[in-house]
């Protein structure tokens, strides 16, 4: 059956391991639905244009700017927001330890990119890979050195069992199923 939505419709979103039903217009972006309807405000609006990365969440294991995804598109996919990490993730500890933020507004987006990076590369990747992934986000407060340090620290920690890291990104139609180059 072809999916089709018109006007405000109830859609099902799987966020942080839980199923939610929300009423959304097809034109509603995922970011607004997460924030306004589910109260998940860790992902932030910074530009709504895909340029700053503050709204980054993880969808099926990949970092995605939730300002550039329709909520209806996210149906049937696994969405992970910072709230879903719950404070257990290596990335979170590393960010605190490395003093990797000041105002904290971009932090959620950077954390999600780092967490996805660690999902994708089980060992510390080369510096250029880290840069490539983190270049999707902007920070206006720090010098970025602190963020580099956080990535290294993240890899020095053993992730707690049962953390979202254990679920490898499944191959889907929407998102690339490319193999891990390492």
């Amino acid at each position: 059956m072809m999916k089709k939505y018109e006007g405000k419709t109830v859609i099902k979103l799987r966020v942080n391991g839980q199923d939610h039903e929300v009423a959304a217009r097809p034109a509603d972006i995922l970011l607004d639905v997460l924030r306004q309807q589910l109260g998940l405000t860790a992902a932030k609006p910074g530009c709504l244009n895909g340029d700053c990365g503050a709204c980054t969440v993880i969808v099926d294991g990949w970092p995605i700017k939730s300002c550039l995804m329709l909520a209806v598109e996210a149906e049937g996919h696994d969405i992970l927001t910072l709230e879903g990490l719950g404070g257990r993730a290596a990335a979170q500890k590393a960010f605190v330890a490395a003093n990797s933020f000041q105002c904290g507004y971009c932090t959620s987006g950077f954390l999600m990119v780092c967490h996805a990076l660690q999902n994708h590369y089980s060992e510390l990747p080369e510096e250029y890979v880290i840069e490539e992934w983190l270049q999707a986000n902007l920070c206006r407060c720090t010098s970025y050195q602190e963020l580099r340090r956080a990535v290294r620290l993240m890899y020095e920690q053993t992730p707690p069992s049962g953390s979202p890291r254990d679920s490898r990104p499944p191959a889907t139609n929407v998102f690339p199923a490319g193999k891990n180059p390492l």
């Binding site: 998940l40 405000t41 860790a42 992902a43 927001t81 910072l82 709230e83 990490l85 719950g86 404070g87 979170q92 960010f95 605190v96 003093n99 933020f101 000041q102 904290g104 932090t107 959620s108 954390l111």
Partner: peptide, 11 residues
């Protein structure tokens, strides 16, 4: 450490 650090890394 920054007093509000954990609030900032958990959203």
């Amino acid at each position: 450490q920054r007093r509000e650090a954990w609030d900032k890394v958990t959203g």
